[in-house]
Deep mutational scan, measured.
Amino acid sequence: SKNWSEDDLQLLIKAVNLFPAGTNSRWEVIANYMNIHSSSGVKRTAKDVIGKA
């Protein structure tokens, strides 16, 4: 699996709070948010995000 930096983990926590349970396509939305805002340049999929959340 791809390494997660501390910044990416913080971003994931922020995204999970921004897009609560019940959000349509929640994990796709979170992955997309991370891909836009992450400084690491690593592209995450919904599966990556679910695996780490």
Rank of each mutant, 00 (worst) to 15 (best):
S1I: 12
S1D: 03
S1E: 07
S1G: 15
S1M: 05
S1K: 15
S1F: 10
S1W: 02
K2R: 09
K2Q: 05
K2D: 12
K2I: 15
K2V: 05
K2G: 09
K2S: 12
K2Y: 10
N3I: 14
N3L: 10
N3A: 05
N3P: 09
N3G: 05
N3K: 05
N3W: 04
W4N: 02
W4Q: 02
W4S: 03
W4R: 02
W4C: 02
W4E: 01
W4K: 02
W4Y: 06
W4V: 01
S5K: 11
S5A: 02
S5F: 03
S5E: 15
S5P: 15
S5C: 06
E6T: 09
E6K: 03
E6F: 14
E6M: 05
E6C: 14
E6L: 05
E6G: 09
E6W: 15
D7E: 15
D7L: 12
D7F: 06
D7M: 14
D7P: 12
D7Q: 14
D7R: 14
D7K: 12
D7W: 05
D7H: 07
D7N: 10
D7V: 12
D7S: 14
D8I: 04
D8F: 03
D8W: 00
D8T: 08
D8V: 01
D8H: 04
D8M: 01
D8A: 00
L9H: 11
L9W: 12
L9P: 02
L9Q: 15
L9C: 12
L9G: 09
L9F: 15
L9D: 15
L9Y: 14
Q10V: 08
Q10L: 10
Q10P: 02
Q10R: 08
Q10S: 09
Q10I: 08
Q10A: 08
Q10W: 02
Q10F: 05
L11T: 09
L11R: 04
L11Y: 04
L11Q: 03
L11P: 01
L11A: 02
L11H: 03
L11N: 05
L12S: 02
L12I: 05
L12P: 02
L12M: 08
L12D: 00
L12Q: 01
L12W: 09
L12C: 03
L12N: 01
L12F: 11
L12T: 01
I13V: 13
I13F: 14
I13W: 14
I13C: 09
I13R: 15
I13G: 15
I13Y: 13
I13E: 13
I13S: 15
I13M: 14
I13L: 15
K14S: 08
K14L: 06
K14R: 11
K14F: 13
K14A: 13
K14M: 08
K14W: 03
K14Q: 06
K14P: 00
A15P: 02
A15D: 02
A15G: 09
A15W: 03
A15R: 00
A15M: 01
A15Y: 03
A15I: 00
A15V: 04
V16F: 08
V16S: 12
V16W: 07
V16G: 07
V16R: 14
V16Y: 13
V16H: 07
V16N: 11
V16I: 15
V16C: 08
V16D: 05
V16E: 12
N17F: 06
N17M: 08
N17W: 06
N17S: 12
N17K: 12
N17Q: 09
N17E: 14
N17R: 13
N17D: 15
N17C: 06
N17H: 09
N17I: 05
L18R: 09
L18K: 07
L18M: 15
L18Y: 09
L18W: 04
L18D: 06
L18P: 02
L18G: 04
F19A: 04
F19C: 04
F19S: 03
F19V: 10
F19Q: 01
F19N: 02
F19I: 06
F19E: 00
F19T: 05
F19P: 00
F19W: 08
F19M: 04
P20K: 10
P20C: 04
P20V: 02
P20S: 05
P20W: 00
P20R: 05
P20D: 10
P20E: 06
P20T: 03
P20L: 01
P20A: 04
P20I: 00
P20M: 00
P20Y: 01
P20N: 06
A21G: 10
A21F: 11
A21K: 13
A21M: 14
A21C: 10
A21P: 11
A21Y: 07
A21E: 15
A21I: 09
A21R: 12
A21H: 15
A21S: 13
G22W: 06
G22M: 05
G22E: 14
G22K: 09
G22I: 08
G22Q: 06
G22R: 11
G22L: 05
G22D: 13
T23R: 03
T23I: 08
T23F: 14
T23K: 04
T23W: 05
T23N: 05
T23S: 07
T23Q: 09
N24D: 14
N24R: 12
N24Y: 07
N24E: 15
N24C: 09
N24F: 11
N24L: 10
S25C: 12
S25N: 05
S25D: 14
S25H: 12
S25W: 08
S25V: 06
S25M: 13
S25L: 07
S25A: 11
S25K: 13
R26G: 02
R26S: 01
R26E: 04
R26H: 01
R26L: 00
R26V: 00
R26A: 04
R26T: 04
W27V: 05
W27P: 07
W27L: 03
W27A: 10
W27R: 02
W27D: 05
W27K: 02
W27E: 09
W27S: 05
W27H: 04
E28R: 10
E28D: 11
E28W: 03
E28A: 07
E28K: 07
E28T: 06
E28L: 06
E28F: 05
E28C: 04
E28V: 07
V29E: 10
V29W: 11
V29Y: 09
V29S: 14
V29H: 11
V29P: 02
V29F: 06
V29L: 12
V29D: 15
V29I: 10
I30Y: 01
I30F: 03
I30D: 02
I30T: 00
I30G: 01
I30P: 00
I30A: 03
I30N: 00
I30Q: 00
I30E: 00
A31F: 00
A31K: 06
A31V: 05
A31N: 02
A31M: 03
A31E: 01
A31I: 02
A31Q: 04
N32S: 14
N32I: 03
N32H: 15
N32D: 13
N32F: 04
N32T: 10
N32W: 05
N32G: 08
N32K: 11
N32V: 03
Y33N: 00
Y33W: 11
Y33K: 04
Y33H: 05
Y33A: 02
Y33P: 01
Y33R: 01
Y33Q: 02
M34N: 03
M34H: 03
M34E: 02
M34A: 01
M34F: 06
M34T: 04
N35I: 01
N35S: 08
N35T: 06
N35V: 02
N35R: 03
N35G: 03
N35Y: 02
N35C: 03
N35L: 00
N35M: 04
N35E: 04
I36V: 13
I36Q: 15
I36W: 10
I36P: 00
I36G: 13
I36K: 15
I36M: 15
I36H: 10
I36A: 14
I36T: 13
I36Y: 10
I36F: 10
H37Y: 12
H37N: 05
H37D: 05
S38F: 02
S38V: 02
S38Q: 09
S38W: 00
S38L: 01
S38T: 10
S38R: 05
S39T: 15
S39P: 13
S39L: 11
S39C: 11
S39A: 15
S39G: 14
S39F: 05
S39H: 14
S39D: 14
S39I: 08
S39Y: 06
S39Q: 11
S40A: 14
S40E: 06
S40Q: 09
S40K: 06
S40I: 03
S40D: 07
S40L: 06
G41V: 09
G41M: 13
G41A: 15
G41T: 11
G41S: 11
G41P: 10
G41Y: 07
G41I: 10
G41W: 03
G41L: 08
G41E: 09
V42A: 03
K43C: 12
K43E: 11
K43R: 12
K43G: 06
K43N: 13
K43T: 13
K43V: 10
K43M: 09
K43P: 08
K43A: 10
T45P: 08
T45I: 06
A46R: 08
A46G: 07
A46T: 10
A46Q: 11
A46Y: 06
A46S: 11
A46V: 13
A46N: 04
K47S: 14
K47L: 11
K47D: 14
K47A: 14
K47P: 10
K47G: 12
K47E: 13
K47H: 09
K47N: 12
K47Y: 08
K47C: 08
D48H: 04
D48Q: 10
D48V: 02
D48E: 14
D48I: 00
D48Y: 00
D48R: 02
D48W: 01
D48L: 01
D48M: 05
V49W: 02
V49L: 07
V49Q: 02
V49S: 01
V49P: 00
V49T: 06
I50F: 12
I50Y: 13
I50A: 15
I50R: 15
I50N: 07
I50H: 09
G51F: 10
G51P: 08
G51I: 09
G51M: 10
G51S: 13
G51N: 14
G51Q: 12
K52C: 13
K52W: 13
K52A: 13
K52V: 09
K52N: 06
K52M: 07
K52T: 08
K52Y: 08
K52D: 03
K52G: 13
K52P: 11
K52E: 13
A53Y: 03
A53C: 08
A53T: 07
A53D: 11
A53V: 13
A53H: 07
